[in-house]
């Protein structure tokens, strides 16, 4: 708890315009993907096609999401495309 408070006070002041720009980027990514789950579904299907060449996996369990997390610098929020692919077996490839 004390740590949290100390960190809070130690944080260098971020220009409010950078906070604005960052929040805006996240909003817009949200707006574009929330409105069209089809985009995520298309990405999911493409990933399945590629992964299928290399590993055996549980198709129904394959999840693709966009997450928003505080970046390591603690100042910004970053958005990431996260795919969770439970692998059953790696296929034997090539030689």
């Amino acid at each position: 708890m004390l740590d949290v408070i100390m960190n809070f006070f130690r944080k260098p002041k971020v220009a409010s315009k950078d906070i604005a720009a960052n929040r805006l980027k996240v909003c817009i990514i949200h707006d574009k993907t929330d409105g069209s789950p089809e985009i995520l579904e298309m990405i999911r299907n493409e990933i399945i096609k590629i992964i299928d060449n290399y590993v055996e996996f549980d198709r129904d369990a394959l999840e693709v999401n966009i997450t928003h997390a505080d970046a390591a610098d603690g100042k910004t929020v970053s958005s990431a495309l996260v795919a969770n692919i439970p692998i059953k077996r790696v296929k034997r490839i090539g030689k």
Partner: peptide, 16 residues
């Protein structure tokens, strides 16, 4: 305000 860093500048907006 832009100079103080308290307003997004043109490049910020155009990039987004």
């Amino acid at each position: 305000m832009v100079k103080r860093g308290d307003m997004m500048n043109i490049d910020d907006i155009l990039e987004i």
